[in-house]
Structure formats: C-alpha cells, structure tokens
C-alpha cells in the first residue's frame, strides 16, 4: 500500500554527483527545472535527454530507480496531456466534431504538440528532481537548505528550527510507515476490510488506522522532546555542526556543465527561434 512512496530514496554509492556540495546540487536542480520551462523546440528536448543521460551516468544510479520515480507520476502526466489535447483549439485542425451548439470537439496540431511537450517536460522535471534525492542523503539535503536559507536570519526567520524540523520529519517517515503497517495488520486481524467497497467506504475504513497513528505520533513527539532536551538541545547561535559544507573543484565543473546546458536552451529559444524547422524540415 505504501511501498510506492518514493521519498528519502537515497541510493548509497560514491559518485561524482554524490560528492557534490548539496547547496550546489539544490541550486543547479532549481536552475534545471526553470530551464525546462523555457524549452520550445524538440531539438532542445533532445539535448535535455542527452544532458540527463550524462548526469545519470555520472551519478552511477541505476536508470531503473530513476524511472521508478517517473512511474509514480505517470497518471498525472497522462491526465495533463489529455486535457491539453482536448482543450487547445488553436492551430491547424486535425479532427472536428460538433457535439452541441456551444462546444465543438476539436483536436489541433497545436494541441498535439502542446501535450507531447508537456509530457516530456514533466518527465524530465521528475527525472531531474529524483536525481538529487537519489544522490543526496536527507541530512545533507537539510544541511544544504539550512545553509542556503541563512541570509533569511537577518529578518529573524528561524532557519535553524526549520532545518531541524525537516530532518526530524524525514527521520520519522520510515518509523511511522512501519507503524502504519502494524496498525493495518492489527485492524485486519480484528476483521477490518480495507480493500473492499467504494471510495467513501475505503476512506472511512482508514479512520481506525489514522486515529491510533495520530495518537502515537503525538506520544512519540513528546518523548522525542524529552530526549532532545536531555541532549542539551537549544536553538541558539552557540550550536556547531559536525560537517562543514565545502565547495570543491567538482562543484565548479558541475556548475559550468549545467550553466552551459541552460545557456544552450535559452539561446535556442530566443536566438535560433526554432531550430526544428532546419533540423526536421517538412514536419513543422
């Protein structure tokens, strides 16, 4: 039931991408995601695919685990693609049928292109995002976020508290998942049925699982607070970090590589204005 949750899916190995500074990885991932939304041409999509393959090769993560996270959003991608296909009504018409006076069912070339591009965009986006979660431990990720948010301390934003809340949340995901399984089994043993009935009945049947889960989560929080107090937790400036984040030559190379890719996409969009016409004549 919860096996497909792709969270904290760190793939432990040592690679070029694994050893990058988490701050650099976060910033480059953001740059990549922004860049993806500027892609206009199929040629740029092709370049993005090559770019991602190179990154995956350098991360030494099996392609299968990357594809697994793409699988998780397949339904969403399909849904978005279909909506685009049916509701974009500009461009050359492929198929048309009048259904009622106020709505004509129409599929156009613009719609087809839009949905293909949207599909590719979403798939690439998830691929990019999953690479960072596959190659960075949650702890390093929170370290990175904390470090990047540091400037916000000026406006009294509780950066450190947010970071510790995040790392505790990540830490408790497997524990609570485990507990959910146990509760489900315990309720099943008492004759509860989770897989039958309609949507509402199914949702209702989750209540006897959720309530004990909530109660126990609060109890755990209480005990954890004592444990943290006992270990002298205090969110003051005095606190140090075992690991200092340090930038290295790898980070420079990675930044240049991603920046190069992004520059190409922007140039393709605003300068070549559609390399597709040259590369794929006749189609466009």
């Amino acid at each position: 039931m919860f096996k497909d949750i792709a969270f904290g899916q760190y793939y432990p190995t040592s690679s070029f991408v694994h050893n990058l500074d988490p701050r650099i990885k976060l910033l480059l991932t953001v740059l990549f995601i922004v860049t993806i939304f500027f892609i206009q041409t199929y040629f740029s999509f092709l370049v993005t695919l090559v770019f991602l393959i190179v990154v995956i090769l350098f991360s030494r993560v099996p392609v299968l685990s990357v594809l697994k996270s793409v699988k998780g959003i397949l339904f969403l991608v399909l849904f978005a693609a279909i909506i685009n296909l049916f509701f974009v009504s500009t461009g050359e018409v492929i198929y048309e049928k009048v259904i009622t006076d106020w709505w004509t069912f129409r599929i156009t070339w613009d719609g087809v292109h839009n949905s293909i591009k949207l599909t590719l965009r979403l798939i690439f986006l998830i691929t990019g995002a999953s690479i960072i979660s596959l190659t960075t431990t949650p702890m390093r990720l929170t370290d990175g976020i904390e470090s990047l948010l540091k400037p916000l301390k000026v406006i009294k934003f509780p950066v450190h508290d947010i970071a510790i809340i995040m790392s505790i949340a990540l830490r408790f995901i497997p524990t609570l998942l485990d507990e959910t399984h146990k509760t489900i089994n315990a309720q099943k043993a008492r004759g509860a049925a989770f897989d039958t009935g309609g949507l509402i009945k199914k949702a209702k049947s989750m209540l006897p699982v959720l309530i004990p889960l909530f109660v126990s989560a609060f109890r755990r929080a209480d005990e954890l607070a004592f444990a943290m107090d006992a270990r002298c937790y205090n969110a003051t400036e005095k606190r140090t970090k075992m690991r200092k984040l340090k930038l290295g030559w790898r980070d420079l190379i990675a930044t240049l590589f991603v920046a190069g890719y992004a520059t190409f996409i922007f140039v393709d969009r605003y300068y070549f204005l559609g390399l597709d016409h040259v590369l794929f004549p006749g189609v466009f």
């Binding site: 904290g8 431990t137 949650p138 702890m139 510790i164 790392s167 505790i168 990540l170 830490r171 524990t175 755990r220 005990e223 954890l224 444990a227 943290m228 270990r231 002298c232 937790y233 205090n234 005095k238 606190r239 140090t240 970090k241 075992m242």
Partner: peptide, 22 residues
Amino acid sequence: DNQMVATIVEDDVAFGPENLGV
C-alpha cells in the same frame, strides 16, 4: 525509536556535542 534525531547513525551521535557547541 523515539530518541533518535537524525536518519544516519553518525549524525545522531553528533547531535549532543553539536548542541554543546563543540
């Protein structure tokens, strides 16, 4: 389960001294 702060063992052990500002 209710006294571990970090996901990784060494980070959890480091929590106390980090709090003390070592």
